[in-house]
């Protein structure tokens, strides 16, 4: 499988990438790790005329904590996140998500920025970035702006990125207090993508849940925050019964669950409930 022809330009700075994007507009695509874009191009699902390779911009690859905020550069690979001592300590949900994503070779090359920008409905990162309440920092012709992960994913393969924009980093407040997190997925046996993926972060205060973030991927054409689950958890004692009751809301309001040969929409919604319960139980256990 060979992609259609394109012009290939390597850039060394963000400014250079932005000016090329402004020049070529919708004819151009940003190439990060290439592990979403190149497969789509090989299938001729995408045929950009120009590829702007940002792989050589080293300053887009970082994981750092500053003033209570964790910043992850767009070109940070899944492997770097999986093995980050900083994240393993302060937000283990992200390494746990990374280690279940694709396979070793894919994690070596694929990037978090590329994955969120591609917005595959079965990708793993969307659930995690929604759960931690992340913002996607975007840089475009008018400068920099931050988009809440909840608003970033618009539809299948569609984000709120505008022409000329590129993803610069993912940032979020470092979890504080007594927290427990978990990512659990039903892995598609052939592709490894999430049939259903549930990311959970819980904050516990005095034995009760004071705050939570639940991100769901795979179920619908866009990842979502399970707000009814979060509402049910607020102030709850995190015992098995209350966790199961909260999890029963995992697909509330979802009318467009993805149905295909491997899993029907009803089955996905069922899995979402089961895996939300399991992820909640695991996260609650870790918070103790």
């Amino acid at each position: 499988m060979i992609p259609a022809n394109f012009d290939y330009i390597t850039v060394k700075s963000l400014d250079e990438a932005l000016s090329l994007l402004a020049k070529h507009k919708d004819d151009a695509k940003i190439l990060a790790g290439g592990h979403s874009l190149l497969p789509a191009m090989k299938l001729r699902l995408m045929q950009p005329k120009v590829l702007i390779d940002i792989g050589k911009i080293k300053e887009l690859s970082y994981i750092k904590e500053e003033g209570g905020q964790i910043h992850i550069g767009a070109m940070t690979t899944h492997f770097q996140i999986e093995t980050s001592a900083l994240l393993q300590k302060s937000c283990p949900l992200l390494p746990e998500t990374a280690t279940q994503l694709g396979d070793m070779q894919v994690r070596n090359k694929g990037t978090i920025g590329g994955s969120v920008a591609h917005a595959d409905p079965a990708a793993d990162w969307p659930a995690a970035v929604i759960a931690v309440g992340a913002e996607i920092v975007v840089i475009g012709p008018k400068g920099e702006r931050a988009i809440k992960a909840d608003d970033f994913f618009v539809d299948m393969l569609t984000t709120s990125l505008q022409p000329g924009d590129l993803v610069k980093e993912v940032r979020f407040a470092a979890p504080k207090g007594k927290t427990g997190q978990a990512y659990m997925k039903v892995r598609h046996p052939a592709s490894g993508f999430a049939v259903v993926g549930i990311a959970v972060t819980l904050t516990v205060d005095g034995g009760k849940c004071s705050a939570s973030g639940i991100g769901v991927t795979g179920v619908s054409s866009k990842p979502y925050r399970a707000k009814s689950v979060e509402a049910a958890l607020k102030g709850s004692a995190l015992d098995a019964k209350s966790l199961a009751a909260a999890a029963s809301h995992a697909s509330d309001g979802i009318s467009d669950a993805i149905s295909e040969l491997y899993a029907t929409g009803e089955y996905r919604k069922h899995l979402a409930e089961i895996y939300t319960r399991r992820a909640l139980e695991t996260a609650a256990g870790r918070a103790k």
């Binding site: 592990h35 190149l38 070779q105 490894g192």
Partner: peptide
């Protein structure tokens, strides 16, 4: 498989194992 699934094309690029069916030769410059 040519679809980044089977791993038969795995090589090391700068010390990282990658699936060379999902990397452009130009990226390896």
């Amino acid at each position: 498989c040519e679809t980044s699934l089977c791993g038969a094309c795995t090589v090391m690029v700068d010390g990282q194992a990658v699936k060379s069916c999902t990397v452009l030769a130009a990226q390896a410059d």
